[in-house]
Design a binder for these strands. Structure first.
Length: 578
RNA sequence: GCCGGUAUAGCUUAGUGGUAAAGCACUUCAUUGGUAAUGAAGAGACCGUGAGUUCGAUCCUCACUGCCGGCUCCA
């Protein structure tokens, strides 16, 4: 089935939903009901009546009942006056009718039984036969036309498929996605926590979660060090003047956390980004073209005050750790610097078993973009050249650029086929000028350097939310918080097990011996629950022959491996991130 | 911020206008085992916070806070 046909099916179902609701709630007024990515929704003004998800089964029942008499979808063109009369009691439809009349758009209606709706068409031929396989999913608030100045309507989400099988499959996928929800796994695998005393959007990482974080961040730092980046360090607060000069003060507005000094009159802010600080390291002395490119990197936390309703697990937080960097370079070096970054991205994401696409975010003609237009055009050409030469799978989107320059956003694909923006690589010719950064070129003239902002993982919190769901918590060996769980079969084997643990730890393997007074089966179960990649089972045979029996988390066994050989293979796998 | 939902032990949940129950986790004892839960006992909760209604509130009402589903998709 083509996507347009599925959209027609879902849009038809939205009509059916509207009809059912109006039958059950005569005072309700329906607004719009389009097909969306995985289903449809229909907005209603219920007046004073409150409805909740408990009402959905009844509405579904009514839908099935009405559907029996829905033979066709007829679309009739009507004069403006007729439409105004028909929808006199529905301010939302009326607003649309008036708009269409103004713009000279033909007005069409569709009627099913006593249910009359304003509609531009796009339905199935025989609703009675085709719209059978639907399910209402949730109730939510939504502003009329998505504008928070408008009235809040009640939105009912649902989905509809050509067959029951596809519907069931979709509902099953929703369940699966819930099971691998990073908030749930974060708790189950003991990775991160929140505290009401600390505040919302401020995750704290447990020892296990911190290992995961640090392994990822160390990998990112390692790639950068190999590519000629140098570590720097900056404090997390600054006087507001820094951002007034950079242009961020107006841009960020209420997202900035303010910090007031009690000793002086000075007003500070928690840094919402790191570039202005880094420019001040560059600005600390005169620079020669011979020094460029200068590449500062720092994994550091920045703070942004999101609207409370927008915080979500690790995906939207208020303390954001970025594997950030800023390269100061000449115009001729831009292309090379971007290529270096693309190479790092390749290494990083292929090690994580993820693919990515690029979105070249360019400017449009609006006036929110600062700086010289010629600069922009040159820069955008350079970025596209890099994307082509690097064989990136890319699209160009106009209007998505940062205010200071165009960027390459990296969209990572996860195992459920979803796309997430993680990394971003940005060119900036505004801030160096604003901060008066210069270098003396070969011809003795002082020039303004370009600045390249980059993050490989982006926000580690956000990346972890994606990666936890991507892997469902089955982290590869090199990332697993516990890499090896050592399970002695009985207490007779404890001392050998402890010896094995000691040797593994001496080789930087994250091994943990389970000496609890539990049966082996129970210990295996717990190791499985924490998704530990390898379990070592030790009994009489292993003790006697100085071997280990290895069970993987997928349930495969290798019996009586020589310990030395096992250790060698293991450390090899870990260091190569295999 | 706005609409709706929700808040009971560390976790997952049950329950009632007369201060609460279960499983897992935890502690102790017994048990020492070959690939996803050994048995028994014990301890653990001002039922999110504040106010109101009531003789009496974990339960009803209101406010606050946290969390959950949403707030681009245009008749």
């Amino acid at each position: 089935m083509k996507q347009t046909d599925i959209d027609h099916l879902r849009h038809s179902c939205a009509h059916l939903l509207a009809a059912a609701v109006l039958e059950l709630f005569p005072k309700a007024k329906n607004a719009i009901g389009p097909a969306i990515e995985n289903g449809f929704y229909q907005d209603f003004d219920f007046g004073d009546t409150k409805i909740s998800e408990d009402d959905l089964p009844e509405i579904e029942g009514k839908m099935h009942q009405l559907l029996k008499n829905w033979d066709t979808f007829e679309i009739n063109e009507v004069p403006v006056n007729q439409a105004k009369k028909d929808f006199a009691k529905n301010p939302y439809k009326l607003e649309l009718v008036n708009e269409f009349a103004k713009e000279g758009i033909k007005i069409t209606e569709t009627q099913q039984g006593k249910f009359l709706d304003l509609c531009k068409g796009g339905h199935v031929g025989s609703p009675k036969e085709e719209v059978k396989h639907f399910k209402l999913l949730s109730v939510a608030g939504a502003y009329w036309r998505g504008n928070e100045k408008n009235k809040m309507l009640t939105r009912i989400y649902g989905t509809c498929f050509p067959s029951q099988k596809e519907l069931d499959q979709y509902l099953e996928n929703l369940e699966q996605a819930k099971l691998r929800d990073h908030r749930r796994l974060g708790k189950e695998l003991d990775l991160f926590v929140f505290s009401d005393l600390v505040g919302s959007g401020l995750p704290m990482f447990t020892p296990r979660g911190t290992i995961l974080r640090n392994e990822l961040l160390n990998f990112s730092e390692q790639l950068q060090l190999e590519s000629g980046y140098e570590k720097v360090f900056i404090p997390h607060i600054t006087k507001t003047e820094l951002y007034k000069k950079s242009g961020h003060w107006d841009k960020f507005g209420s997202e900035l956390f303010l910090v007031k000094s009690q000793e002086t009159d000075e007003q500070f802010v928690l840094k919402p980004m790191n570039c202005p600080h880094h420019t001040q390291i560059y600005a600390s002395r005169k620079r020669s073209y011979k020094e460029l490119p200068i590449r500062y990197m720092e994994t550091t936390v920045q703070y942004r005050d999101e609207k409370p309703g927008e915080l979500l697990g690790l995906s939207r937080v208020r303390a954001i750790t970025i594997d950030d960097s800023h390269v100061f370079c000449t115009p001729e070096q831009i292309e090379g610097e971007f290529s270096i970054i693309i190479n790092m991205l390749r290494k990083l994401y292929s090690s994580l078993n993820m693919t990515f696409r690029a979105r070249l975010s360019f400017r449009d003609d609006s006036n929110k973009f600062l700086g010289d237009k010629k600069h922009w055009e040159d820069a955008q050409k350079t970025l596209e050249k890099v994307a082509k030469n690097q064989n990136l799978d890319y699209v160009i989107v106009e209007g998505e650029a940062a205010f200071y320059g165009p960027k390459i956003d990296i969209l990572v694909m996860d195992s459920l086929g979803r796309q997430w923006q993680c990394a971003t690589e940005q060119l900036d010719f505004v801030q160096p000028a604003r901060f008066g950064l210069t270098y003396t070129d070969a011809d003795g003239i002082e020039k303004t350097p370009f600045m390249v902002h980059k993050a490989l993982l982006g926000s580690i919190e956000r990346f972890l939310s994606v990666y936890i769901e991507h892997t469902a918590g089955n982290f590869p060996l090199w990332l697993a918080p516990t890499q090896v769980s050592i399970i002695p079969i009985s207490e007779k084997h404890n001392s050998y097990a402890q010896k094995v643990e000691k040797q593994l730890k001496a080789n930087q393997v994250r091994a943990l011996v389970d000496l609890r007074n539990e049966k082996m089966q129970s210990k295996i179960r717990d190791a499985q629950r924490y998704k530990v990649p390898l379990m070592i089972i030790l009994g009489d045979k292993e003790v006697q022959s100085e071997t280990v029996t290895v069970r993987t988390r997928s349930g495969e066994n290798k019996f009586n491996l020589k310990f030395e050989k096992f250790l060698k293979d293991l450390t090899q796998k870990i260091t190569t991130k295999a």
